[in-house]
Structure formats: C-alpha cells, structure tokens
Simulated assay, not measured.
Amino acid sequence: MLKYITLLLALCVGSIFAEFTAQDCRELGFNKAQLMCSSCEKLNDFGLDSIKPHCKECCTPDKQPAAQRRWPKAILEVCTCKFRAYPQIEAFIKSGRPAKYSNLQIKYMRGLDPTVKLLDARGNVQETLSITKWNTDTVDEFFDTHLEKPAGKNSGKSAYSVVEEEDSEDYLETNRI
C-alpha cells in the first residue's frame, strides 16, 4: 500500500514539476522509450480514456509522417533495356506526366532497375526507393505528393530534364576484378 501511495505522490509531484521519468512510466505500465504519442490517441477506441493523460506524459512525440515530407528535387533512374520488365515505368516516362514536375530529373542508367532518389535543397541524396512494383498512377501520385511545388515564374512550366548515361567504350569495365 505504501508503494502505491509513494507512486501516487511521485506522479502528482512529477506532473507539477516535470514529465514522468522512465521509472515512473514503467510503474504505470508504459515503456517510455517505445511509446509513441500517436498510440495514446487510440486509447479512446478501447474505452481507456482514464489512462490517456498518463500515456501522454510518457510518450515520445512522433516524427513527421513520410506522407507530409516534401523534397526539393527527385531523380528517377531507369534503364531503357529493362522497359519490357517494367512497362508501367516506361508508360510513365513516355506519357506527358513527367512534364508536370520541373524538379524531376530522369536519368538513364545502364542495367539499373527503376529507382527514385529524393534530394535535399543542396542536391544531396536523402532517400533511395525501389519502384519496381509501382504502377504508372502510383509513380505519378508519389511525385505529386512528395515533390515540392516550385514557386516563382517557372512554377507553371513543364521542364523536367533527361540525362543520358555517358557511354564508355566498355561499360562492363567496372565489373573487372
């Protein structure tokens, strides 16, 4: 009984002066290191409204959802020799859809499966995604959702760029041991 009174006192003092410690949360049944605040919102669905305030004290704020992140630039890397294996990517490229994204660059890389590289404002690659299983609409929706809309006088122009791979005399030269 004394343990519960001490815990209750600690919770009251903790809520007045600071957030709960990891030990306080553990005693309440929460793992502070792994509890995300979005999980606390779901407690209402299960009739657990009474523990929601404690949950909020023990949770870690969620990072910004990926769906809300926007990137200044993207590079779609493909190999024309693999268009037969990925007709949906070929359809996207040959349609007028890439023209909607002035900050999209299409880069033809020999032997490469379709990938998207998302770049920050300095042009550094932040994420690389395989898009081998995506259909044409998914690719278009992804760029619409995750690419920043350019501002200024060029915002209405459709000017994506296409970069051809530089031909070397022997492209298998890099595979030599």
Rank of each mutant, 00 (worst) to 15 (best):
D62K: 13
Q68T: 05
K32Q: 04
S50R: 04
S95A: 14
P98N: 08
R97D: 02
D120R: 10
S155I: 05
T174E: 11
V125S: 11
G156W: 02
D120S: 07
E57C: 02
K149P: 00
F17V: 03
Y108M: 01
D49S: 13
S102E: 02
K153G: 01
E90A: 12
L35H: 14
S15F: 06
V139Q: 06
S38P: 07
A151Q: 14
C58S: 05
S38I: 11
Q126E: 15
P65Y: 03
C79L: 14
G123I: 01
L9P: 07
Y4S: 15
N124H: 03
E169W: 14
E57G: 05
K63E: 02
L76C: 11
L76A: 08
N44M: 09
K107C: 00
C25V: 13
R69I: 12
Q88G: 00
R70M: 03
T21Q: 09
L119C: 02
L7N: 08
F83V: 12
L9N: 09
T136Y: 03
T60P: 14
V116D: 02
E165R: 08
E164L: 01
S95M: 15
Y108L: 03
L118F: 07
P61V: 11
A66I: 07
E165Y: 07
F142G: 04
R122N: 10
P87I: 10
C81T: 14
V139T: 11
Y101N: 05
N124R: 07
T128V: 14
V78A: 05
S38T: 13
N135V: 11
I75L: 03
T136G: 05
T21P: 00
S102L: 07
P150S: 04
L8Y: 05
K56C: 04
K73C: 00
Q23E: 06
K73G: 03
P53D: 08
P61Q: 14
A85T: 04
C59N: 06
D113W: 08
D144Y: 13
